[in-house]
Structures are given as C-alpha cells and as structure tokens.
C-alpha cells in the first residue's frame, strides 16, 4: 500500500464527502486521517489515504467525483506516517480581540521568528466582531516560553489583542 494526500476544494453542497469516500473505498483504499471545513461557503478537505497504485491512478479514480461536484482536486504521494498528529501540539497560542487586518500575520510572524511550527490553526469571528484564534504549535527545542509569551503579548497589545501562550493539557487517565 502507498500513502497519498488528497486535497479537494469547491462550493459546498451535500454529498461531497460521501462521493469521495465511496470512490476511495471502491479501489480498496483506507482513510488514515482527515480534515474538512467550510469557510465562506467553500468546502475544503484534506485526506491522507492508503491505497494500492500510484498518484495518477488515484487521481483518475477521483476525477469523476471532482467533475460532478466541480471540485479542485490535487493528489500527492505522502510520506508514510501511521498517524500524523502524534505528540506534536505541545503549546497553544490563544489570541482574541476586535477584528481588524493584520492579527494572524502578526502572531504567525512572531511564531515563525521563534522557529515554532504551526501544526493547526483556526479562528472564529463572533457576531460582535470579536476575532478569536488558536494556534497549536510545536516550539523549537530550548525555546524560552516566558520570553516568547511576553513577545507575543507585546506585539498583540498594539493591535488590541489579548494573547496567551500555554502548554496544551494532556490528561493521562
């Protein structure tokens, strides 16, 4: 079996995931990992699948689904990982404030400067225009978390952002 990443994006409507899933199952594939969301009416999905054959074969399998739902489709060979989310999101950056341009840019620039890798990132915009976002990050070894937290808060202050850097809580029960 080989592992592939599939990216699909298009106007959202019911049945897209079902059609993609059916096509993958039809060629004996297994979905190892997935992420899907809808933003501004746009459906976007990233799948990691294991299946026999090469990327071109998988793409031809999915092409009819992409055409039916008018999806942008991209298939790439992926490095084999049993599961991609193991032990990596060790820190969370929570930031929120009145919405304005530059909030994401500022925080991500500070994180990049500290060599932190953003593993997951998402935001929510409230009805009263509070923009809130969470970055799940891996910090570079030896990172001074207190200094990074202070730097984030200092940069955020000018933008009216409240920012907190904290270790993701893991419950070993």
């Amino acid at each position: 079996m080989n592992q592939f990443a599939i990216a699909a994006m298009g106007t959202d409507r019911p049945g897209i995931v079902a059609a993609v899933g059916e096509a993958i199952l039809g060629v004996g594939g297994n979905i190892d990992d997935s992420s899907m969301t809808i933003l501004g009416g746009h459906f976007a999905m990233l799948l990691v699948v294991q299946v026999e054959g090469d990327a071109d074969q998988l793409e031809s399998t999915l092409r009819p689904v992409a055409e039916k739902f008018e999806l942008m489709l991209e298939v790439r060979t992926a490095a084999m990982h049993p599961f991609s989310d193991v032990d990596r999101d060790d820190y969370v950056v929570a930031a929120y404030g009145p919405d304005k341009p530059g909030l994401v840019s500022t925080i991500s620039r500070v994180l990049a400067g500290a060599d932190a890798n953003i593993n997951d990132f998402g935001s929510r915009l409230g009805a009263d225009h509070t923009f809130a976002m969470w970055f799940n990050v891996s910090l570079a070894e030896g990172t001074d978390t207190a200094a990074l937290g202070e730097q984030l808060r200092a940069e955020g202050r000018d933008l009216g952002l409240d920012i907190r850097l904290y270790r993701a809580e893991v419950e070993d029960l």
Binding site: A94, D120, S123, G126
Partner: peptide, 17 residues
C-alpha cells in the same frame, strides 16, 4: 482569564448570535 484562555483548539469554540 476568560474561558477563551482555557480553550485548546479553534474547533472547541462556537460562535453564537
């Protein structure tokens, strides 16, 4: 601290009207 400071992922937050 607000509850937003305790959330660990954007997927754990839900906008409401």
């Amino acid at each position: 601290l607000l509850f937003l400071d305790r959330v660990q992922h954007a997927r754990d937050v839900f906008p409401r009207k």
